[in-house]
Design a protein around this nucleic acid. Structure first.
Lengths: 379, 379
DNA sequence: GCACGATGGTTAATCGATATACCTGCGGGT
DNA sequence: ACCCGCAGGTATATCGATTAACCATCGTGC
């Protein structure tokens, strides 16, 4: 059925030294019956629809000029055979993988990941899935490994872009990804000077400011602040907002402690703060998990929350609504930020996606873990 | 907004006026200087090392017969250029993506994901990362969408295998993935009849049995069981173990309630159980998040834990160690199971990985949320 | 003097889809 | 009659790596 000259079209066109046909390639070996039906390829669809593979490609991509009837016939054949274009082949040809990376950096060997990331992933997925994008998740131990990972993922062409979490003060990643020419977004406050766009709520400081206002209204004057690791941008941002809000009332934090984002650290720092000579009447934590541990530590120390100590968290995780006392916290809409980050990244990848609007600000959610300052006699 | 019928923006952009017959043939098409250095390919490495591309391939893969000196020269050239084989090209050629899927099914629009999955992912990643495998994470709303997703991922050839979580009673997935010829593992009890291997600790019932023993030793007789959704295999397994352990003492649960895995459900069911005429003195929950909510609900109802009510969780999440009271729970080593699942899956994918040993059993971790049964006068 | 097996590479086909550069009729203007 | 333009496709090079098949040297045993 096939003309033999099909195998060497180059020779047919211009054959200078007339190579004798001694070196013939073997005809296609008959398919060994290995039982399983191989996945259909574009060829099978083309054959089924009675068109060329080019036509199939044009039909599924909506490119080229195909008659409407032909397009429908092709799509029906594709559906019939259960065919979708091979992601690898498409990726190779178009240099696009439709895959984004999320790298979670977790301290040394802390178990598991913060529930925070669950929320973030939910937000991301909501935007990615409908557009056929996948999320490649990686866990690394430190910044060096994170950078090495981007290097590898880019070298292998595995991803089209990356979501960077937990912006650091002198974050090496934006410059690195710019050099790698990898689209990226950085979660946190937008920074005009950065090579990668930042995505986050406006007025990041508003949450802690509302927290301070709330505590002030309840009469608190001795407030301690548990801050996250120094190197994180949001740690600084929030701490600054916190101190400024207090300063507006002519006050200063009774204590500020930088800790890691671990339960153990939260517990330990709470014990320390409660042992202070001028014991704070309110504690503000950098996330809900830590706030819960803080409440645990306080209760263990014999303090009732909120009667003798007020506690405020950050993130508004679902769990906080069901504890006793229910947790007062700052809602920063992690899911929504995740969705916005996905959109910004998709746009960088050339997808036709509406730009996200993120006009909310972090808001305090007042529940039960905060209360009036205890009477002065309790001092 | 678009030129009619012509979606190609390149054409629109480069249309100088009237160059008739000039665009006849444009063979060379020199590289458009778009500024960025393109990623090196195998050709560049081959040229740099003065060998053929085949030699490069053999050097990095350790196949073929290359002189040691040549191999080193090639690897040096590759390192020099920062080249790694393109994942897409390799995937296309070898029909292997080195990517596994983890699909998390979350009920309707519950926010975020269970911390449980964080642990699982940690365990998986620990095995995947060193072998260059990636984890593709997807969130779906229901079983139908999960199945459709496997269908698509397979049709597109995006993954080499999948980790199935939360085995169901008549789980459609094993048969589906067998039909799709996609390697998979199912987390949960190994079931010899299933088309996909199950990975889980031995003697799954041991955890609840120890929990019952513990409660009995504390004098409890009225114990209620909060079970997960009926359709989950481990729900049944554990419930059966629970009832059997009680039956061994001639007892029966004072109540059994099936609920969803949500905080709200945990809270509600606790309220209901505590309002029972024969109020239980101990509650056993199917996971830690729910147990924590249960404690919250009990405290809100004015009951002290563990003095007036004992509570037991499941999973041994980090958080439980820092609450007040610290949570008594069952440790089922989710991380370790995740690592084992990864290995089993990798072996199915043809990787040379030692078979995992999983000889632990679920064990009760006694902490503070359980205590002696309250005196009879409290009835 | 020569067939012969190692040793150490190279050539070219191939994976599946895409895109560019052709064809091929056909209706119409001149 | 002839060429143009266009609608509706098709043929084929290409993306980057892998691999089966092939080839070139160089001792070596007889």
């Amino acid at each position: 059925m096939n003309p033999p000259q099909h195998t060497s079209s180059r020779d047919a066109e211009a054959s200078p030294p007339a190579v004798p046909a001694a070196r013939r390639r073997r005809p296609p070996a008959p398919a060994p019956p290995d039982g399983g039906a191989p996945r259909p390829t574009i060829k099978a669809v083309a054959a089924a629809a009675g068109v060329s593979t080019a036509a199939v490609s044009q039909a599924v991509n909506g490119t080229g000029r195909l008659a409407e009837a032909t397009r429908r016939r092709v799509l029906e054949a594709a559906a019939e055979l259960g065919w979708s274009p091979s992601a690898s082949a498409t990726a190779l040809r178009r240099a696009r993988t439709r895959t984004l990376a999320l790298v979670v950096r977790r301290p040394t060997d802390v178990l598991g990941t913060d529930p925070h990331f669950g929320e973030l992933i939910t937000g991301l997925e909501g935007e990615l899935a409908p557009r056929g994008y996948g999320l490649l998740l990686h866990l690394v131990a430190g910044m060096d490994q994170e950078s090495a990972l981007y290097e590898r993922l880019t070298a292998e062409g595995r991803i089209d872009g990356a979501v960077l979490t937990e912006a650091r003060v002198d974050d090496p990643r934006p410059a690195q990804l710019r050099d790698l020419q990898l689209p990226a977004v950085l979660l946190g406050a937008p920074d005009p000077g950065s090579p990668v766009p930042g995505v986050g709520l406006r007025r990041q400081g508003n949450g802690v400011r509302e927290a301070v206002d709330h505590l002030m209204a309840l009469g608190h004057r001795r407030v301690a602040y548990v801050a996250g690791p120094r190197e994180l941008v949001h740690t600084r941002l929030r701490l600054a907002a916190f101190e400024e809000a207090l300063a507006d009332r002519g006050l200063r934090p009774v204590a500020v402690r930088h800790t890691e984002f671990t339960e153990a650290a939260a517990f330990a720092v709470t014990e320390e703060l409660l042992a202070l000579p001028a014991r704070p009447t309110a504690l503000v934590f950098p996330n809900d998990s830590m706030a819960v541990c803080g409440i645990g530590a306080a209760q263990r120390a014999g303090l009732r929350v909120p009667e003798e100590l007020s506690v405020i968290g950050y993130d508004n995780l679902p769990l906080g609504r069901w504890l006793h006392p229910r947790l007062t916290t700052v809602d920063q809409q992690v899911q929504r930020v995740g969705a916005a980050a996905a959109r910004v990244l998709l746009r960088q990848c050339g997808e036709d996606v509406p730009a996200p609007v993120l006009d909310e600000v972090p808001r305090l959610v007042v529940r039960e873990s905060t209360g009036p300052v205890p009477g002065e006699e309790s001092r």
